[in-house]
Amino acid sequence: MASNVAQFAEGEDPQQMSSDTAALQDQGWALDTDGMGVTKTFHFKSYFKAVAFVNLIAAESSAKKHHPTMTMRIGSVDVHWTTHRPRGLTHKDIDLARHCDRGAGLMGAVESGQGIKCGPKN
Score class of each variant (00 low, 15 high):
2 A>L: 09
3 S>A: 13
3 S>I: 10
5 V>T: 15
8 F>W: 05
10 E>H: 13
11 G>M: 07
13 D>K: 01
18 S>P: 02
21 T>K: 06
23 A>W: 11
23 A>G: 09
24 L>K: 02
26 D>F: 04
27 Q>K: 13
27 Q>N: 12
28 G>D: 03
29 W>I: 07
31 L>N: 05
33 T>N: 09
34 D>P: 03
35 G>I: 15
35 G>P: 10
38 V>I: 11
40 K>W: 03
40 K>I: 03
42 F>S: 05
42 F>N: 00
43 H>I: 10
45 K>E: 08
49 K>G: 02
52 A>S: 14
52 A>W: 09
53 F>E: 06
54 V>K: 08
54 V>M: 13
54 V>Y: 06
56 L>V: 06
59 A>W: 11
59 A>S: 12
62 S>Q: 14
62 S>C: 11
68 P>Q: 10
69 T>I: 12
70 M>T: 05
72 M>Q: 14
73 R>P: 02
78 D>N: 12
79 V>S: 01
79 V>C: 01
80 H>Q: 04
80 H>K: 03
81 W>K: 00
82 T>V: 13
83 T>P: 00
84 H>S: 11
84 H>N: 08
84 H>I: 14
84 H>C: 00
85 R>M: 10
89 L>S: 01
91 H>N: 11
93 D>R: 01
93 D>C: 10
95 D>F: 02
96 L>D: 04
96 L>M: 08
96 L>Y: 00
100 C>E: 05
103 G>R: 02
106 L>A: 14
106 L>G: 15
108 G>P: 09
112 S>K: 15
113 G>H: 06
115 G>E: 06
115 G>N: 05
116 I>P: 07
116 I>K: 14
121 K>P: 01
122 N>G: 14
122 N>C: 12
